[in-house]
């Protein structure tokens, strides 16, 4: 059963990765044509990378899976932080530095929630939701030993994958949103 969950989560992560990568490419192409800052393109590239790593973590094993699992949080955190920085609100990143010693999951959660506060429409809800799932990760992983933690973690990961896929697909759709 768990392998089915892992495959579904992995597929959703790849879908999200494709969506984010498509948005990043469109932004990069525009930047090349008219100039401007490629920061937004970088941010979506990092989010795409985070989704690819999440997919890898779900289907691989051993050290690779573990490394990719942690990388999902750190790449997401960097992506959301970059979106925050794009808005010339670098000061918003200062409290996030405080979350770093608590681990990448908490950092990703804090970054996503802070970033979502400046968003609107579905992006606001979905990014805040992704932030909450990173919190669930921490709770499931560290605070709840045993099967409860495992189940919570599995639910959190599934929701995170779904949220990211919805976000990416919604904004990568040909007509925009």
């Amino acid at each position: 059963m768990s392998s089915t969950v892992e495959i579904v989560v992995s597929a959703l992560d790849l879908l999200g990765a494709a969506g984010f990568a498509y948005i990043a490419l469109r932004l990069a192409s525009l930047t090349l044509r008219i100039g401007g800052e490629p920061k937004a393109s970088w941010a979506f590239s990092l989010l795409a990378a985070a989704q690819i790593l999440a997919s890898l973590a779900a289907i691989s094993g051993g050290r690779l899976s573990y490394t990719a699992y942690v990388a999902t949080a750190s790449f997401s955190a960097a992506g959301f932080a970059m979106l925050t920085a794009c808005r010339e609100r670098q000061y918003a990143l200062i409290p996030l530095a405080l979350a770093l010693p608590l681990g990448f999951d908490l950092l990703a959660a804090a970054t996503a929630i802070v970033a979502s506060m400046g968003f609107r429409g579905p992006a606001r809800t979905l990014v805040a939701g992704i932030g909450v799932t990173f919190l669930v990760r921490t709770v499931g992983l560290v605070l709840l030993p045993g099967p409860t933690g495992e189940v919570l973690l599995a639910i959190g990961e599934s929701l995170r994958s779904m949220g990211a896929a919805m976000l990416a697909v919604l904004y990568a759709a040909p007509q925009g949103r």
Partner: peptide, 23 residues
């Protein structure tokens, strides 16, 4: 902006590097 980009990329890479090291 370049420094910001470098810092955030370093942050992104720090996760997998640390995880790989402590496994």
């Amino acid at each position: 902006r370049t420094i910001m980009l470098a810092v955030l990329l370093a942050l992104a890479l720090a996760g997998p590097m640390a995880a790989y090291a402590v496994y």
